[in-house]
Design a protein around this nucleic acid. Structure first.
Length: 283
DNA sequence: ATGGGGGCCTGCCGGC
DNA sequence: TGCCGGCAGGCCCCCA
């Protein structure tokens, strides 16, 4: 579900409750999500201090005082909700447990972090902090789209010779890590590039436009607290609101929002996923 | 190597 | 009101 902006929103939401704080008790309510949890996960979490919370692509990484790192992926429907009174600013107590509450972390500061994931496409794992980037889920990821190494030169080279539609190429996490269906659609609209265009056949000048466009879309979405369509919630349960700013995603048959364009947003299916675009604006 | 499709799960929504 | 098919923001794996 959550793409880079949603994961970053969750990471930022977790920071005040978790960063620098001790996990007093970890409860693991089932043996697996998408994959089995690592052995003795609850014991390995209990008593550890969370040194810091990082994000890589759509993964949250919690570095622990045990020199292990907890990897968290929200899959399609995963939520990390905070309850309790970590900073003395909330009056409510922990809510009643809900179906699909799979992992619960009680922090020594009184905060409770609940991982809820109905579809169980999410994941958690533990690995040594040193060499975490070698984890099988992380080792093949491409550059961070908000990082310095993602630039025109890189993207031109990465798309070169690719016959696949640019839509599929930008969803490929080995090319750039963190984009999903929504933000690829939105970025291609802002760049005026058709999702069906072959990745290797985009003029360099247009790839040069695409790079900053991707960055700005993601930054705009982070500032808006992500997009909430069906499942996504921030750590306080609030909705993000970037969905109100979509130009094309989920806007089939609605008018194009670009000034002066009289086109209509269309939906096509590309490798099993919906693409939304304006055929007048995007070539 | 590259590209496309299936499958994993549950929940929700629209149509009948 | 109830049932059923279709669909969903991700990602791994297999096949051609």
């Amino acid at each position: 579900m959550p793409e880079l902006p949603e994961v970053e929103t969750v990471r930022r939401g977790l920071e005040p409750a978790m960063s620098g704080q001790v996990i007093a008790r970890a409860r693991v309510n089932r043996p697996d999500l998408r994959w089995p949890f690592p052995p003795r996960m609850a014991e390995r979490l209990t008593g550890q201090t969370v040194l810091r919370l990082r994000r890589r692509s759509k993964y949250i990484l919690a570095d622990l005082s045990s020199d292990e790192t907890l990897l968290i992926h929200l899959g399609m429907s995963g939520r990390m909700l905070i309850s309790g009174d970590p900073l003395g600013q909330f009056v409510h107590n922990h809510p009643a447990p809900e179906k699909h509450d799979h992992v619960v972390l009680d922090m020594a500061n009184g905060a409770r972090i609940t991982f809820n994931d109905p579809r169980r496409f999410g994941a958690m794992d533990l690995m040594p902090t040193s060499g975490a980037e070698a984890h099988p889920l992380l080792s093949k990821l491409g550059p961070e789209p908000l990082g310095n190494s993602f630039d025109e030169t890189y993207l031109v080279a990465a798309l070169k010779g690719r016959n696949t539609p640019v839509k599929s190429a930008l969803l490929d996490q080995r090319i750039v890590a963190g984009l999903g269906n929504i933000y690829v659609c939105e970025a291609l609209f802002r760049a005026g590039i058709s999702p069906m265009r072959r990745a290797g056949r985009i003029a360099r000048t247009r790839v040069a436009i695409l790079v900053p466009v991707i960055r700005v879309v993601l930054q705009d979405a982070i500032e808006a607290g992500g997009s909430s369509l069906r499942d996504f919630r921030q750590t306080d349960g609030e909705l993000g609101y970037f969905q109100h700013r979509f130009d094309v995603y989920d806007r089939e048959s609605q008018p194009c929002r670009r000034d002066g364009c009289t086109g209509t947003i269309r939906r096509v299916v590309q490798s099993g996923r919906s693409s939304f675009y304006c055929a007048s604006c995007q070539r």
